[in-house]
Design a protein around this nucleic acid. Structure first.
Lengths: 338, 338
DNA sequence: AAGATTAGGTTGAACGATAAACGTAATTAA
DNA sequence: TTAATTACGTTTATCGTTCAACCTAATCTT
C-alpha cells in the first residue's frame, strides 16, 4: 500500500507538504511543487487513508442513512420503494459533497449512537421514522447532527424535512369535493402511525369542514395493514348500505390495495368508488385505472435534507429547523366526476 | 471521547489487556479481569474507534454495495425496488456478521477502486451490473473480494450469484406452451443488456424447440425501454394481422407496461393476450390482472452472496465461484388457457 | 528437582495522516 | 537601512488501536 510517506519521499519534500496539497492548503505550497506532487500521486494512484485522517481529525465524512426496522420484521425498510429512492438520491447528493453514506438499520437508539461513535460519523439522516419511543430517544440523545425526514417533533429541538401533509390531505379531499363527491371515506395504515398521518387526516377534516361536512365514524378506516388492508377496506365498503362515493388513502400502496379489493367485489373504480392515493410512487402509475394521487418531489426532499445537514455540520448552533415541502395533485383515472 | 486508555486506567490494567478483551482473546486475560473490564466499558458506553483499529489492522469491516449508474442518469438504481430490497437484505445479513455497509454509486471502475482503498474495504457486492466495459474493468482490476449479482463473466475469474435465467425463460415459455399457446412473443428492455437477458432468451428458444417451434423475428421485441416500452410493444401487437397469443417479458415492469398498453388499445389480458413477467416484484401483485411471473427469492440471493463474500474474505484463494439459484412460476391471472 | 510450559499479563513501536508551532530566505514597508 | 512580512516549507507530537516480543510467577513433566 502506497502512503503519503512514499509520495513525499519521491517528491523530495516532507509529508506535511504532501498533506497540504491533499487538503488544498494553497498558501503553504508553491504551484510548481504542488504540480510535481500531484503528478506523483497520479502516477501511483495514491489515495489518502481515511482511517488515518479521521483518527486525528475526528471526522470521517461518513453520513449514516438510518433505517428503523419494524418491530420483529427483519429487513429494513429499503423494501419500501419510496425509501429506496430517497436513499438513492441522498447517496448521490452526499457523494457530490464528498461524503460517504453508510446504511444503518436499527432497532434501538443505543445501536445507532454506538455506530456513530465507532465511526465518528459527521451526521445522520433518518428516513421513515416511526412514532415510537426508539426514534424519539435517538433524536433526543444524539450529539451529532440528525435530520429527520417525514416527522416533526414539536416538543424537541430537531432538524426535520416534511411534506405539507395537512395541505396534502386537504388538497386530496378538496379535489374530490370539487368533483362533486360528498361522501368521502378516509383510510390509513397502522404501521405508519406518525404526525404524517395525523396531519393528512386533519387536512381531510378541514376540507370537509369547508363544505360544511364532518367525517363519519364508519367511513374512517384506520389501523389497517398495508398489504391486506386494501382488501379489508374494500370488503367493508362492499357490505355497506350507505356507501361512500370516494376514499382518500394515505398511501399509494393502500389505495392500490383498495382498488384491487374492489375489483374482486364488483365495485367499479372509479364508477362506483373514486380513490385518491398519496405519494405518486410507481404503483400509482402501474395500476389500472391509473391512480390519482397527491404527488411529492422526492428529489427535492433529499436535496433539502442534505442542505440542512450540511449547514448543521458547519454550524453547531443550527439544531432546530423545519422545512415543509409543497405537494400537488397528480391526476390520473381513479377519480370520477359526479 | 472515551478511549481504551481511560478504560485501562480505571481497571488498573494496560491498554493491551483491554484490547484483548475487546478482541475476545480469552487466553490472555483471566475471567475476573475480563468481567471487571467489561463492566467498566458498559458503564461508560465505550465503543472502540474503528479508524484506529482499521489503521493498524488494515481492515475496516466495511463492505461496499456497489450501484452502477446509468450513463447520464443521475440517481443510482436504488430507485429500482428490486435493488432496494436486495440492498436491504444485504445490509441486514452483513450487520449480523458485524460488517458495515457503505453505499457506493459509481460511473467508472477507478472511482470504486479509489473508495475501496480510501476505506480499506474488506469486500464489495455489485448489484444490477451492466454489460459494459466499466463493470468488466472493475471485476478485472479489483484486489479485494467482489461478488457480482446477476451477471456471469465466463471468461474471467469471478464470484457471482445468478438466477438460473435460462431455466426461467424456459419455464415461462413452457408454462405458456402447456396452456396451449403456440404463438409466443418475447420482449426485453435494452437497458438491461446482459447475460441475464441472453439466458432468458435462450431458455425461451429452447422451450419453443421442444415443441418443434422457432422464434419469429416480428414477435421479438428487444431494445425497448422499460418505461415506454410496454406501450410500444402493445402498439406493435395491436397493428399486427397475425398476432401472438402470449408474450414473455423479461421483467415485471415491462410486462406491466404491456398490460397497461393493451388496456388502452382494446386488447384484453388475458383473453386476447396472455402475459408472463419475470421477478415477482411488487408491481406483479398490484396490477390487474395479477401478473403470472417467474419468481425468485431475493433474500436467498442476498444470503448466498454474503456467504460467498465471507468465504472469499477468509480465503484469498477463493476467487472463482458461481452460484445459480432456482426459480419457479408464480401463477396469477395474466395467462389464459387456450 | 530441574527444566519446560502455561496463565496472565506488560511494553514499546507502529499504522498513516494532521495540528500546531517553528524555521529561513526573499521581498516589502517605513 | 532595518524591521516586518510573506512565501514556502519543516519538525515534532499526537490521534486510538493492535502487533510482536517480552516478562514473571505458578504449575506441570519426567
Amino acid at each position: 500500500m502506497i502512503t503519503i510517506k512514499d509520495i513525499a519521499a519521491e517528491a523530495g519534500v516532507s509529508v506535511m507538504t504532501v498533506s497540504n496539497v491533499i487538503n488544498h492548503n494553497h498558501a503553504r505550497v508553491s504551484p510548481a511543487t504542488e504540480q510535481r506532487i500531484r503528478d506523483i500521486m497520479e502516477k501511483y494512484s495514491y489515495v489518502p487513508n481515511m482511517a488515518a485522517r479521521s483518527l486525528i481529525s475526528k471526522s470521517s465524512r461518513i453520513i449514516a442513512v438510518l433505517l428503523p426496522m419494524w418491530h420483529g420484521s427483519t429487513a429494513s425498510m429499503l423494501r419500501d420503494p419510496y425509501a429506496g429512492q430517497l436513499a438513492g438520491y441522498l447517496e448521490e447528493l452526499l457523494r457530490e459533497r464528498e461524503y460517504y453514506v453508510m446504511l444503518c438499520s436499527f432497532e434501538n437508539a443505543e445501536q445507532v449512537l454506538q455506530v456513530q461513535r465507532t465511526w465518528q460519523m459527521d451526521g445522520m439522516i433518518l428516513i421513515l421514522p416511526h412514532e415510537d419511543p426508539v426514534t424519539r430517544e435517538l433524536v433526543q440523545k444524539t450529539q451529532k447532527p440528525l435530520v429527520v425526514i417525514d416527522r416533526r417533533y414539536d416538543d424537541l429541538e430537531t432538524l426535520s424535512v416534511c411534506l405539507d401533509d395537512r395541505a396534502g390531505g386537504c388538497l386530496a379531499t378538496q379535489y374530490l369535493l370539487k368533483k362533486g363527491h360528498r361522501k368521502i371515506a378516509f383510510a390509513a395504515p397502522s404501521i405508519y402511525e406518525s404526525s404524517v398521518i395525523r396531519d393528512r387526516f386533519e387536512g381531510y377534516r378541514a376540507a370537509l369542514a369547508e363544505y360544511g361536512l364532518t367525517e363519519r365514524e364508519d367511513w374512517l378506516f384506520d389501523n389497517v395493514s398495508l398489504q391486506a388492508g386494501g382488501e379489508a377496506v374494500a370488503e367493508a365498503i362492499s357490505r355497506m348500505s350507505d356507501r361512500p362515493t370516494a376514499v382518500v388513502a394515505t398511501e399509494d400502496l393502500l389505495a392500490c390495495g383498495i382498488i384491487k379489493g374492489c375489483q374482486g367485489r364488483g365495485i367499479q373504480v372509479p364508477m362506483d368508488l373514486s380513490v385518491m392515493g398519496f405519494d405518486d410512487s410507481m404503483p400509482a402509475r402501474l395500476i389500472t385505472p391509473g391512480l390519482t394521487t397527491v404527488a411529492q418531489d422526492i428529489r427535492e426532499k433529499a436535496d433539502q435534507s442534505v442542505k440542512m445537514l450540511m449547514r448543521a455540520i458547519e454550524d453547531p448552533s443550527f439544531r432546530n429547523d423545519h422545512r415543509v415541502l409543497g405537494v400537488r395533485v397528480k391526476e390520473r383515472q381513479s377519480v370520477r366526476e359526479l
